[in-house]
Design a protein around this nucleic acid. Sequence first.
RNA 1: GUCCCAGUAGCUCAGCUGGAUAGAGCAACGGACUUCUAAUCCGUUGGUCGGGGGUUCGAAUCCCUCCUGGGACGCCA
Length: 562
Amino acid sequence: MSSAVDQMKKNLAGALTHSVQKAVSQGFLRDLQELPDFIIEIPREKDHGDFAANLAMLLSKEVRLPPRKIAEILKGCIDLQGLPVEKVEVAGPGFINFYLDPRWVLEILPEIITLDENYGRQDFGGGAKVQVEFVSANPTGLLHMGNARGAALGDSIASILSFCGYQVIREFYINDAGHQIELLGDSLQARYFQLLGRPAEIASEGYHGEDIVETVKGFINLYGDSLLDVSEEERKNTLVDYTLKEKLAVIKETLLSFGVSYDVWFSEQDLHKKGVVREIVDRLNSMGFLYEHDGALWFKAGEFGVEKDEVILRSNGAPTYFAADIAYHFNKFQRGFDRVINIWGADHHGHVARMKGAMAALGYNPDALQVIIMQLVRLYRDGEIVRMSKRSGQYVTLEELIEEVGRDAARYFFVMRSADSHLDFDLDLARAQSNENPVYYVQYAHARICSILRQLDETGKKLPAPGPDDLNLLKEEAELVLARRLADFPEEVSMSAKDLAPHRLTRYLHEVAGLLHSFYNSHRVISQDERLSCARLMLVKATRIVLCNGMRLLGIQAPERM
RNA sequence: GUCCCAGUAGCUCAGCUGGAUAGAGCAACGGACUUCUAAUCCGUUGGUCGGGGGUUCGAAUCCCUCCUGGGACGCCA
């Protein structure tokens, strides 16, 4: 599906291409090898028309004429039959500017209303299978701000891709194995002993949080001191299993209340249990990508353009996190995903190159693995940075954040900035139910439109069905600008998908909301003039659809009243 | 030391596969509610796009270099 704007660009580009051919055949221009890759763009300046072409500047060198001269020639040769072009001008260094009958864009309104929740949907994904893996937190605690940002980003990206015709799977990789889990086991056992009156200590790098104590208390309430007499291994395993189950359930629930639900929860432990990690090590080894050094087994990452080689099997025989992660990613591709997208914190960026290297070694296209590295989140309250430390258990959790600022504000703030930009999250601003808060600005626009529709409904007044000429009653600047921007929605969506950048959408929605507010304040939708009311109703209905669809992609609710 | 990200208005950030006079929100200042929701609108103020070179018709955008901040460089994850 191509948008009205896209179609217009194509039409104009086609007309220009013909114009070049005509100019050449009539001897105004030298013969060309081939037409340069010119673009039809939308000028920033309104005075520069609705569309502009840079073709003349690009031709200048080959044709050996000044750009403005070429532009004039093309202008003379162009055939705009059937297009709503009012005038063509040559301007600046040689731009060809097209000025359209402003009403050309109004035709989009009935189309939006017909498509409704599908307006903006694209099919360029072509049904390709994409996996988006995000959050993937250690199930040893609660979710922090980094996880929260990842959740908002990942979920929105998944929604956007899905809206663009990809077949998307949301996946959470549960890091329920490895060194951290061993530490957790030690800490749980220590707490277990302590709570049952036996001396025990938690190692300095262990888990000291109060939540662990609560968990163990809960366990004792259920099972008493039954673990005192069993082997250490069994004791730890039992406590760990119990704890992970409990923690994971909380994480799941928190994410759900954040509007995020997963298709797949993938356990690292399963990989180990099924021997898949060993298999992948053997596989790489037999392919000649491993070597032994200092008693450990190393992956030749250097052969894939990575700075350093990486240990894959420790000298004590235990696989590293990297080994398990290779197995996991191998598994992803084996499941048939055409694209695999990971969302990782900035502290994992060193991991990207070697993981791609490992995939290349295993025969997969490393570019099919895309890793979005997101920068850190800093929380501000009362203008001060909120200090956080996960080790001491002193940090703001996602649950608390949702409690404090609400789900919609939190999600909006997290996707408001591009992933590679540090995020300063102002808690006071996010919580403020005022004009300072961008979330409400967008939601309010939606609620206002709903209010109009409700009002009309309640009066029971029937407006005549819109006739073909009614749209042309929309002549006000505010109306035309708004309609024009609504027409951009499909392109905004595909740009967001292409760049994996939901923050584009927040800006777009904010702008549409602004145009609606502006229109609302200067013109009445429902008035004595029934035909005009009818036309304006189409305009606000279409606006509501765009706002609603956009918010849905960002996981933000579109309230009918506020 | 090497690599990644960032440096744009007082603050937080867009814009970066080159386009015309660099944008938004907040903050500041001045106005608008007997009207479909004032969580809104209208107006004003605000810039060495970190510095310096280069590439070309044209650079915030591409290349080189330097400076500053953050992160990564582990048989941690």
